[in-house]
Structure formats: structure tokens, C-alpha cells
Design a protein around this nucleic acid. Structure first.
Lengths: 243, 243
DNA sequence: CGCGGCATTGAGGCACATCAAACTCTGTGG
DNA sequence: CCACAGAGTTTGATGTGCCTCAATGCCGCG
């Protein structure tokens, strides 16, 4: 029922039980498949073409640049995630999107999306739900940076990413592949790369998580959950709410 | 055309040019008007009644509590803002909402909203836009906390709030009423109340802004915009995009 | 084999936190 | 009308988490 469809459909199906017609409409959104090389921005701040993407494979990050040259990574996206919803709805994109690895994604234009909403209003509710879930993650990220120290922050981040990947079948409680550099982590967590390195070492020495060679390994999952006060509640993953 | 309708309708109208029927539907959402005293939470984390509100008057903040007793304020809401969209769409609320002053708000139940979407799909797009705009503010808040120092952060925050209030007619480039304590500012900006006080003094002594007796006064608006590198772009306020 | 990107470690400094205390208001009751 | 309490603001002193600068090590790749 779900497996033959895209990760995106699977994700929306977690909120709204979708009919075959609705699933079909979603599949149509995937007609314009494109490939992007790592590191060249797919969307940049100020861009006027209002297009967004649904990520099929690879990893990307969305970020904002500051005049001083520093940047803040707002979120990482994984397969099944919607990229740049705000750049479809807004006049110009308000953030950048950069592929971390080679990426495959389907381009979605504003009109396609609005047409789909007209045909199947329940899809609008489902997309709204997905957007809200993304916002919940940004909110938790905000709490992370505002009120947790570097060590808890790092642990919390690694757990959250793990939970998301697990949902699309790309990880488990043992660990997952994570092609992020310490610089990327630093830009995401509001830390310096040097401090990221020290914090990772501490977490490893504490026997909680290790992050090496592009792999995250949870040495003591429960211990890490406790240490970081991780509550997966905000990810809201428990079967469709709208029948 | 806009003035006889609610601030909420005015806000959505900034994105979608709404028909009289659509405006009528929006007005119907305002049937269950309620009043809340200051300080008692309207929505709390884990709450199961899935209801949200449209704020008519007063000020509220939404926040998350941490086990240690600290809290992070995610956003302040002003009249015309939607409160707790995520608590309608999610199984349980993932955050708290507290009135800062006495508040008047219209209760909106999940079904009301979904029914309105069914009748007028363009409303769904408009609400999605409003949600995206809220997310853009959270994102900017994240950048604030992650990458700006306390002084820039405070100035940026005061400018953003001013821009939002101006839009609903509650402020100008000279200043605005701001019933927030330094403790609230601290919880919002990820600082200690003591440091908030020092930073406010510095900004005042620099002749940029003053914050006293519940009033924000921009002594040098342009100077502050420059100092904080404020770019109002992300608020996306420039007339309807969908005709 | 050497170069460039990334990881690691050390030393020193600063922006912020924490603790502690006084000061200012505002409202309240005697 | 004054005494008092409580909430918020202000200021000082001291401590620390994280930054910056600088160097070294590691590894894959041309």
C-alpha cells in the first residue's frame, strides 16, 4: 500500500490516509526529476524562480548567510522531505539550499502544487501538516541552541537526525551513515568547528555516541536519550490522524 | 475593502486576494470568541484537545519548558496571528502558549479549519503561506541566537517586532508599546536577565533604541537597522501574490 | 610525493553566566 | 499618608563555556 509509492507519499500518509486518487496526484508531482551535484546551491536567497523540490535521494542542508560571512544551517533534509516550500510561496527565496552529497530531486512548481490542492483539498491539509512538522523541528533546534550547552546540544541533534532517518529506513538505534563534516555540524549548532571536535570527543569518551568516518554509532542509546533529555514527541510519528 | 474585516483576514489578504465568499468563511471562524487573563496558559504541552486560536487583542508568547526549569520562548504573537496551528494538526500540543496581557481570541477547531479548506481551497494556500511566514520568523530567530552576539540579537529582535506591529497598525518607525519584562526578553533571546539589562543599557547609550516603561523608542532607526544588519525581506510584506 | 581538506590538540581571551545586593516602582492595607 | 511587600530593574564581582589563533597530524588524490 505504501511501499510502492515515494518516500514523500509515505510521509504524508503518516498524517492523512490517502486515497488512490490522491496518491496518483502526488506521483504526478514527481514528473520533473533532476540530479544535482554536491555543493552547488539548488536554491539561493533572493532567487525569483519560485520552484521547490521533493528530495528523492541524497542529503541537503538549508541555511542562511550573514553579512560577516558566517552562516547558520537551519536544517538538514533527508529523502522524502520537501525542500524550499517557503521559496514557492514567497516572492523570493529567503534562504539557501545546498546539496551535501549528489542529490536526486523532483522539481515542483508553485502552480502544480496549487492545482493539486484544488483537486484534492486533503492534500493541502497533509502538506500543511508536513510543513508544521518541519517547523516543529526548527523549533526544537531553536531550543537546542538557546538553552542547551554544547554537549547536550550535539547529542540531541544526533538523536533527532537518527529518528528521522529511521523513519525512512536509513538508520536504526545502533547508528546511521552521516556524511557531515565537523564544519557543517558547527554551522548547524551555532558552535565553532574546534569546539564541535572537543564535544564529540567527550561524548565518545563518555561511551554515549561516536561520530567517525561518516558514521554515527550509538554506543549507549538509552544513556544518550537520558543525558540529552530527548523527547521524540515533537516528531509526531504515530499513524494517520485523518482517516 | 480590508478594514472592516479582522486582522487575520487582513494578514491572509496580503498573500491571496480574497473573494467576498472567502472573507465570509474567515469571519465564520471567529464565532467562538473567548477572553483569557494574563499568565494562565491557553495551551500546554501534551494537551489533547486540539484547538487553536486567532488572536484578536493582547499579546501572547509560545514557549517550551526544559526539564531543568529553564524555558525558551519561541515567538511572541500579536493581533491577527494564528496561535497553536501545530496543536491542531498534531495529536498533542508540542508547546505552551501563555498570554502576556489579557487576551481576546477566537477558538478554531480542527474540523472548522478543514471544512473551510474544503469549501475554499485558496484559503488553504493562504493559511499555508501564513504558516510559512511564521516559520520564516522562527528561522530568523534561530539565526539570531545561533550567530549574532547579544547586542545585535536584541536590536534585531526589537526591529522585527516593530515591523510586525506596524503591519497591524500598532507601531511606527518611532517606536511601539511593548509590555515585555526583561525576563521575557531573556527567555526569548537565550540570555540571562542580567545580561539583557546590560545590553539594553548599551543600546540606549549608543543612541540606537531605548526600552523603558513598556515602550520601545527608536532613537536612531536607520542606525539600528545598519548595526543589526536587519533585512526585512523575510517578512515578505508586499501585496498579494495570488490574484 | 606533495598538496588540500578535514580532524585534532593546546594556549589564551572574551562574552556571557551566576551570584549577590541595592534600588525603583506600584499596589495594598493599616 | 505612611509602611510594607513584591515584582522588576540596575549594578558590581567573579567564574566559565566557548571562541580564536596557531600548530600538528591524518588521509585521499592528482
Amino acid at each position: 500500500m505504501t511501499t510502492q509509492h515515494t518516500p514523500f507519499a509515505r510521509k504524508l500518509g503518516a498524517f492523512v490516509a490517502l486515497s488512490p486518487e490522491e496518491l496518483g496526484l502526488l506521483d504526478q508531482l514527481h514528473s520533473r526529476r533532476r540530479t544535482f551535484p554536491a555543493l552547488r546551491d539548488m536554491v539561493y536567497e533572493g532567487q525569483v524562480e519560485r520552484s521547490a523540490y521533493i528530495l528523492a535521494s541524497g542529503r541537503v542542508c538549508s541555511y542562511k548567510l550573514l553579512p560577516g560571512g558566517t552562516r547558520q544551517i537551519v536544517d538538514f533534509q533527508i529523502p522524502g522531505d520537501f525542500l524550499g516550500l517557503r521559496s514557492v510561496l514567497f516572492r523570493t527565496a529567503d534562504h539557501n539550499i545546498e546539496p551535501i552529497t549528489r542529490v536526486q530531486a523532483s522539481e515542483v512548481q508553485a502552480q502544480d502544487l496549487l492545482d493539486a490542492f484544488n483537486t484534492a483539498p486533503r492534500l493541502a491539509a497533509a502538506v500543511l501538516w508536513a510543513a508544521s512538522r518541519d517547523e516543529a523541528m526548527v523549533v526544537e533546534h531553536l531550543v537546542d541552541i538557546g538553552r542547551r550547552d554544547a554537549k547536550q546540544r550535539m547529542g540531541h541533534f544526533l538523536l533527532e537526525l537518527g529518528a528521522r532517518l529511521k523513519l525512512v529506513g536509513l538508520g536504526s538505534s545502533d547508528g546511521y551513515n552521516c556524511p557531515l563534516t565537523q564544519y557543517l555540524l558547527a554551522d548547524a549548532l551555532g558552535l565553532s568547528a574546534v569546539h564541535v571536535n572537543r564535544v564529540l570527543r567527550e561524548l565518545r569518551e563518555d561511551g554515549l555516541v561516536s561520530f567517525q568516518q561518516g558514521k554515527v554509532i550509538f554506543s549507549d542509546f538509552d544513556g544518550l536519550v537520558e543525558f540529552t533529555e530527548f523527547d521524540r514527541h515533537y516528531l509526531d510519528h504515530e499513524g494517520p490522524l485523518m482517516k
